[in-house]
């Protein structure tokens, strides 16, 4: 296995690992939203501005979970494609070697068709991989967008929390947890993007 193939396998495997962490964090945001909603309800008028924010947080968490679920399915397709490309490249190399070793054999020329076919299949796989990576990077960008939105919501939450009297600490804790989660999502997804960006279709 070449270093390039190894890196490709590692890049694809790391997406699943990073995204499973994102999924956990997104679920935590969803929980924080539910918690915030309960606090805001108890706080009544003191947290009036906070109430619609909890719906935003919840919606954002749901959308992130949905996006990550789809990306995971896509990552699996990408993994299968990587295996396929590895097998096709190995076959092409072996076929070329066989053709070289068969020089002088009565039927040596009959090896040309399998060699050509293997080369085309390998190149198809490589092209498909690059196309799929570009699409996956687009989907990861959407998750990044959600993470950025979550940070804005966290900032707004802090402002609204400051108006909530005795509920200030509880609501600030909610804002902190959303901000922290947004950071984690951003960092993990950024690592996926860096791992994949070298394979992007140029």
């Amino acid at each position: 296995m070449t270093n390039q193939t190894k890196s490709q396998f590692i890049a694809v495997a790391s997406i699943t690992s990073e995204l499973s962490a994102v999924m956990v964090v997104a679920k935590e945001i969803s929980l924080a939203a539910a918690n915030a909603k309960a606090i805001a309800f108890r706080a009544g008028d003191k947290a009036k501005g906070f109430q619609p924010i909890t719906d935003f947080i919840n919606e954002l968490a749901k959308e992130t979970i949905e996006l990550v679920t789809n990306i995971n399915i896509y990552a699996l397709v990408l993994y299968r494609l990587t295996v396929d490309e590895y097998q096709k490249t190995a076959a092409y190399n072996k076929f070329e070697l066989a053709a070289k070793m068969a020089e002088g054999a009565v039927y040596a020329k009959s090896m040309q068709e399998p060699v050509d076919h293997a080369r085309l299949s390998m190149q198809d796989c490589q092209r498909q991989f690059k196309r799929d990576v570009s699409q996956l990077l687009g989907q990861l960008e959407a998750v990044m967008h959600h993470a950025r939105a979550a940070r804005v919501i966290a900032a707004n939450s802090r402002i609204e929390a400051s108006q909530a009297g005795e509920y200030l600490q509880s609501l600030q804790a909610v804002a902190e947890s959303v901000d922290k989660a947004a950071h984690t999502i951003h960092d993990n997804v950024q690592r996926c993007r860096i791992a994949l960006s070298i394979y992007r279709n140029s």
């Binding site: 072996k94 076929f95 066989a98 068969a102 009565v106 039927y107 040596a108 009959s110 090896m111 399998p114």
Partner: peptide, 17 residues
């Protein structure tokens, strides 16, 4: 799998693919 290339090359002395 290690033997594929030499085996294929050897068979090509006797039969086309």
């Amino acid at each position: 799998a290690e033997l594929f290339a030499p085996m294929m090359a050897a068979v090509l002395h006797h039969a086309p693919v």
